[in-house]
């Protein structure tokens, strides 16, 4: 659709608007560059002076090209699927110029009311230039009451040049039946990455995360935090791996709350291939602390209400 014909209120259904609000905080046409993909096709696209969004010609997806030294701009690139039976693989490449400082808001929402599976596999590659700063936010949700599954398999590769900084906040808190999440980061000298992954699974959902952070450059550092809650009969598996190939610092921290009949395994790996690499890992899986529950019950909350408060705080 041409941007001139696009109107947030009339070009989108209420479900579309609800999903966009949930996954990308979009309550209207956003300022700056954006791309909305719906049911397997680009719906509308807008570039800005410093940020160009270009449709790929060889495969589905877009290139997002951010000019060097672009400051304080935002890009929104949400994906929504509202038809049943849509299965897609989408390739998005981000080229972030030297010294740029940008916020990228991605996210995927699948609303499946039908009996066929809907699946979005987003393959993201970031090329972060020297001294550039990127804040990447990605929220995944599933909704709809059909029997068809809602499946998301994101793959993210982040290549970071000297002195660059990347903050990734990735959340999946409801309604995604199956997910395989792969993340790889390659850090140059003095590059810094901060990854926060928050996940909640319920019902019979399955989630698997594989993450490799290669600290290749001198003075690079990584902080990886995973907070998850497993409810009902859901299954979660984590494979975070931090590899220190130079004088560097890495800290991996995985905390999970396990409830009902859920199964969680955390299989962390840390490796050092350089005498000055310092790589630390901490992991814990446990029930909700009973003192916390009791404390909230002494405020007059029921056990269920207390659990909800604790989980919300933990995943915040």
């Amino acid at each position: 659709m041409d941007i001139k014909d696009f109107n947030f209120s009339t070009s989108l259904t209420p479900t579309d608007r609800y999903m966009l609000g949930e996954i990308a905080d979009m309550m209207g046409t956003p300022d700056g560059a954006f791309n909305i993909r719906k049911n397997g096709q680009g719906l509308v696209r807008e570039s800005s002076q410093n940020i160009e969004i270009r449709q790929k010609t060889d495969k589905p997806g877009i290139d997002i090209i951010i000019k060097p030294y672009t400051k304080a701009e935002k890009v929104h690139i949400p994906v929504i699927i509202t038809d049943t039976g849509v299965e897609e693989v989408v390739y998005n490449d981000f080229f972030i110029g030297e010294g740029a400082d940008v916020d990228i808001v991605a996210g995927c929402g699948i609303h499946n009311c039908g009996d066929q599976n809907s699946q979005h596999d987003g393959i993201h590659a970031f090329h972060i230039g020297k001294n550039a700063r990127v804040k990447y936010t990605e929220k995944h949700i599933g909704a709809g009451d059909g029997n068809g599954k809602r499946i998301m398999n994101p793959t993210t590769v982040v290549n970071m040049e000297e002195g660059s900084y990347c903050e990734m906040d990735m959340v999946q808190i409801k309604g995604v039946d199956s997910t395989l999440r792969k993340t790889e980061a390659n850090l140059g000298a003095n590059a810094k990455i901060y990854i926060l992954e928050r996940l909640m699974t319920h019902g019979k959902q399955e989630a698997r995360t594989e993450m490799v952070v290669n600290l290749n450059g001198e003075g690079s550092s990584a902080q990886i935090i995973s907070r998850t809650v497993g409810k009902d009969d859901s299954v979660q598996v984590f494979f975070p791996n931090a590899v220190g190939n130079n004088a560097c610092h890495a800290h991996v921290q995985c905390d999970s709350i396990i409830m009902d009949n859920a199964k969680i395994s955390s299989v962390p790996a840390i490796s050092a291939n350089h005498p000055d690499a310092q790589v630390i890992h901490e992991a814990a899986i446990g029930k909700i602390n009973s003192d916390q529950l009791i404390k909230l019950e002494t405020f007059g909350m029921t056990e269920e209400e207390a659990e909800e408060v604790i989980i919300q705080g933990f995943l915040k």
């Binding site: 003192d291 916390q292 604790i310 933990f314």
Partner: peptide, 14 residues
Amino acid sequence: IGYAFQQPPRFKGL
């Protein structure tokens, strides 16, 4: 009825 614990718990995120 209310009770202030001798060893109160902490709450991540609250």
